[in-house]
Simulated scan of single mutants.
Amino acid sequence: PSDGLTIVATGPLTAPSLATSIGAATGADSLAFFDAIAPIVYRDSINMDVAWMASRWDKGAEASLEMGGDGRDYINCPMTKEQYFAFHEELLAGEKTEFKEWEANTPYFDGCMPVEVMASRGVETLRFGPMKPVGLDNPHWATAEHPNGRWPYAVVQLRQDNKLGTLWNMVGFQTKLKHAEQVRVFRTIPGLEQAEFARLGGLHRNTFLNAPTLLDRQLRLKSAPHIRFAGQITGCEGYVESGSVGMLAGLMAAAQIAGRDWTPPPRTTALGALLAHITGDAEAESYQPMNVNFGLFPPLHDVKKKARKEAYTERAKVDMAAWVGGL
């Protein structure tokens, strides 16, 4: 019945009949069947003495905002011709993850083609795709009278991945490279020499909702609020994360049945940070499944970088204890 509370908890290999039913309720464009994941980099590990912020043909992030833009500029990592050709060779030579049997005959589509597959189609392919340098004037090279001129031969772009601005997605860099190879190869990109990764790339089957668009802050389907979603289909990764979101959905439903107000866990905690990411803090246009990581937590700018993880943890313990005490 339409007023009966329902929790839908399903995972990455959701049965076709259930996936069809969910797709019909949410819209075909809102249910994904493949995880085309690009690496995500912690913002404070990017060397901005090498990289710079700008959108194509603009004068930078601040100028974009002043001119009425939306401020969604990119971090740009420039390459010379020599650096690009060396990077291209590393992509081709890097050790890749083998396809599972059921994946082997899955055709690629433009939205999830691994970067190394694009590279294999020709040495210039990436320069006309995700590494296109057109319209990106490098201010570092201009001021230093760089021997390569103001215009990079190729550019790796990173796009803001969460509202806090702590996580940045490597645009178009979904990949089947093994994790250790990703770290090695992607740290050869100028500006990412010391990059720390909140998530590494991949490509595999995974059914998940565009949760920031479809779900409210209590995991309810906006178009049918008696239905809640839980687990990996909401766009979380990992057993602990999936179970945690299921637990939260159960607590929300129990509070609703009892007529109690629901207070979400603080965003300073792992539960609260993940819930906030799923239900609205993530960029809906580029939404991909995510593990809990420190980049989802409200930043502590007044704490030195080396001490931040411990500081995040101590803050979370205090705030979590207070939240549990109020249940």
Rank of each mutant, 00 (worst) to 15 (best):
L251H: 11
R72E: 15
Q83C: 02
P147D: 01
D29K: 05
Q174V: 10
D161P: 12
N293W: 03
F173I: 08
R217M: 07
K304M: 11
E285H: 14
G191L: 08
L251V: 03
Q218F: 09
N206S: 00
N210A: 06
T166F: 00
E82L: 10
V156C: 08
R217G: 11
D110T: 15
S2K: 02
R184T: 10
H226R: 04
T97M: 14
G165M: 14
V171M: 04
T313K: 15
G69L: 05
G172L: 10
T207N: 09
G68H: 06
M53A: 11
F99H: 11
T234M: 09
V185C: 07
Y108S: 09
L192K: 09
T106S: 07
V303T: 10
I278R: 01
A198T: 02
T125A: 13
E237N: 06
K96N: 11
E310D: 14
A276W: 07
I40H: 12
K305I: 12
M79R: 02
G4Y: 00
E98L: 12
E196M: 08
A32P: 02
G122F: 09
P133A: 15
T143N: 07
T143M: 14
F34E: 15
S64H: 13
N148W: 01
K132E: 15
H226S: 15
T26W: 09
L177T: 05
T207F: 06
A321R: 09
F197I: 05
E89S: 12
V8H: 04
G295C: 05
D302R: 07
V134G: 04
L18W: 08
N105W: 11
Q194C: 02
A144L: 15
Y287L: 01
A180W: 08
Q83Y: 04
A104W: 12
A15C: 07
F229W: 13
G94M: 12
L275T: 00
E116F: 11
T20L: 14
S242T: 08
G111T: 10
Q194F: 08
V245K: 05
V41N: 06
G246Q: 08
G259H: 06
I37Q: 15
L177Q: 05
E90T: 03
L31C: 09
P289L: 01
H277R: 11
L177M: 12
S45A: 09
R220S: 14
A51Y: 01
T263V: 11
V303C: 02
E145I: 03
L214T: 06
L214Q: 12
